[in-house]
Design a binder for these strands. Structure first.
Length: 510
RNA sequence: GGCCCACUAGCUCAAUUGGCAGAGCAGUUGACUCUUAAUCAAUUGGUUCCAGGUUCGAGUCCUGGGUGGGUCACCA
């Protein structure tokens, strides 16, 4: 039983009656088979190759069958022009009463609508204005559109000015992404680019013998990042489960198992606030590299991202929101301590917690309950330094207490070998020399646990199985994690993460 | 979660101080054999996001709610 009755507008009701008319004539508005012989761009290049000109009536006319969505129609009495579009491009159709019959042309004008998918047979020619056109001998509907796509067409204003009426209501576009994609070619381009980016990342890592693996999305214990999880439940096993917040702890188990270079591209889920740079589910790339440390990972990161920029954008210089970002190595490298001195004149590691609190007050930053020195430094960094990091920059050497999975520097137990990459004022990636000492790791987990009250949302469960894996011996290694959506933002010049996610999370309406 | 802004026809947008809800495109009907923003003529289409309130009268003012956008906060 249908709970919500569908309602139709007058336009939709009218189109539904067209369905009946089509069927009465014996035309199936939703046939099971089509007979396409060429893509539109293939058909167009055929004409170019054959050097045919306007109205080539010779016997070697190129017969093709094209399919696509009807995008525009201009009827002119005994002939009509139209455009159809497929994924490769757009081509004009010419329908003439003298060729297809007066009745058939009339049917085209009355029963075909913008948005319908059609199949058209004919030969390729050129019009007097030089446009490559399909001279149609027969055509049919292969899928009828009931609802009108959002009109996106140029219109004339009262005076001379021209107003463009595009489908650009942000909420409508996200809620009906299919309509957005159908009428906005530039939106389709973003997602083609996104696909290229992911392909390019894989190519870079595969070439260097990294093994792509898949680890559990449903996990009995979550970890590897600072985030609250989504929880769910397995009915038969009577087991509570969490959607992963990172891949880290599973990928590092694989190093224990003997793999030396592994990576995973997949979805992470974090139960936190949404923003222009945060979606509850997002695509992450993580890799782990045995016998490497964070400097090696830094080198590989700038190579990887300049490779991807070059592959996808054709240049290592990328325009982003008015800035020309230069991805070419080497990137600027500055320690967190020096960065805070440079941008805020704060000598953080030589300051006391009290002094850092004072700086926070000056900066009008609210204090939270779980104050540690590292957290204060991170807060000051986010406020004073991060927004200034437009060009690709590595910030390295982080406070230990905010980096429980990173190895401490050999000469300073308060600082860990960790770096983050920033571009366009945004945190893009996070990496470290991985902690592989199980005794040290257990102490870090315990130390971390002390900072939280028992029922704190931020409290993380102790992953004993991960410690057990490490007990068997984990090779020294460098690890890396990157928000792929943010990389897509940078390489497609988008300021909102929702523009690079096909179906971004939105609140349900009503 | 706080603050600011937006929500009007299928789409993009108007509506003077609170005074008959409009336009272009799309749709419908008609004319037109090389158009492409086709053109021309006629025409349909409204829970102004929702619920209250003030008023002779509310798209407009007030209160509450919804959704979205921006921003701040939160985010070992």
């Amino acid at each position: 039983m249908v709970i919500n009755m569908r309602s139709f507008t007058d336009i939709e009701k009218n189109r539904l009656t067209k369905l009946d008319r089509l069927r009465e004539r014996g035309e199936d508005p939703f046939p099971n088979e089509v007979n396409r012989t060429h893509n539109i761009d293939q058909a167009i290049s055929l004409l170019v190759e054959s050097q045919s000109g306007f109205e080539n009536e010779s016997d070697d006319n190129i017969q093709v069958v094209l399919c696509g969505r009807l995008k525009s129609v201009r009827t002119m009495g005994k002939l009509a022009f139209a455009h159809i579009e497929d994924v490769t491009g757009r081509i004009q159709l010419l329908l003439r009463a003298s060729e297809i019959g007066k009745e058939r042309l009339k049917q085209f004008a009355t029963d075909f609508d913008l948005g319908d998918f059609v199949e058209a047979t004919g030969y390729i020619m050129e019009t007097r204005t030089g446009e490559v056109t399909l001279n149609v001998s027969s055509f049919r509907i292969i899928s009828k559109s009931i609802s009108p796509l959002p009109a996106s067409k140029e219109v004339q204003d009262d005076g001379e000015s021209i107003v463009y009426s595009a489908f650009d209501n942000v909420e409508s576009r996200y809620r009906e992404r299919y309509a957005d994609l159908a009428v906005n070619p530039h939106v389709r381009e973003i997602f083609k680019t996104r696909s290229k980016i992911v392909t390019s990342l894989r190519e870079f890592l595969d070439r260097r013998d990294f093994l792509e693996v898949e680890t559990p999305v449903l996990q009995p214990i979550y970890g590897g990042a600072a985030a609250r999880p989504f929880s769910t439940h397995h009915n038969q096993l009577h087991q509570d489960l969490f959607l992963r917040i990172s891949f880290e702890l599973y990928l590092k188990r694989l190093l224990v198992g003997g793999f030396e270079k592994v990576y995973e591209i997949g979805r992470d889920f974090r139960n936190e606030g949404v923003s222009v740079t945060h979606n509850p589910e997002f695509t992450q790339l993580e890799f782990y590299w045995a016998y490497a440390n964070y400097i090696d990972v830094m080198d590989l990161t700038e190579q990887m991202l300049s490779f991807v920029a070059e592959q996808v954008c054709g240049s290592v210089i990328v325009n982003y929101q008015g800035n020309k970002l230069d991805f070419s190595p080497p990137w600027k490298r500055i320690s967190m301590s020096d960065a805070l001195i440079e941008y805020a004149d704060i000598d953080c590691f030589n300051s006391t917690v009290g002094q850092l609190l004072d700086y926070c007050e000056q900066a009008d930053i609210r204090k939270n309950n779980d104050i540690t020195k590292g957290k204060l430094i991170e807060t000051l960094f986010s406020k004073h330094v991060e927004p200034n990091l437009i060009q690709p920059t590595f910030i390295y050497d982080y406070p230990k207490d905010i980096s429980p999975l990173a190895k401490a520097k050999h000469d300073n137990s308060e600082i860990v070998e960790r770096f983050e990459g920033f571009i366009g004022g945004m945190e893009l990636c996070n990496a470290f020399t991985e902690l592989n000492n199980p005794v040290d790791q257990e102490n870090r987990f315990i130390e971390m646990g002390k900072n939280y009250s028992k029922d704190s949302d931020d409290a993380h469960p102790l992953d004993l199985d991960y410690l057990r894996a490490m007990d068997y011996g984990m090779p020294p290694n460098g690890g890396f994690g990157m928000g792929v959506d943010r990389l897509v933002m940078l390489l497609t010049n988008q300021s909102s993460i929702r523009e690079v996610i096909l179906f971004p999370h939105l609140r349900s309406k009503e």
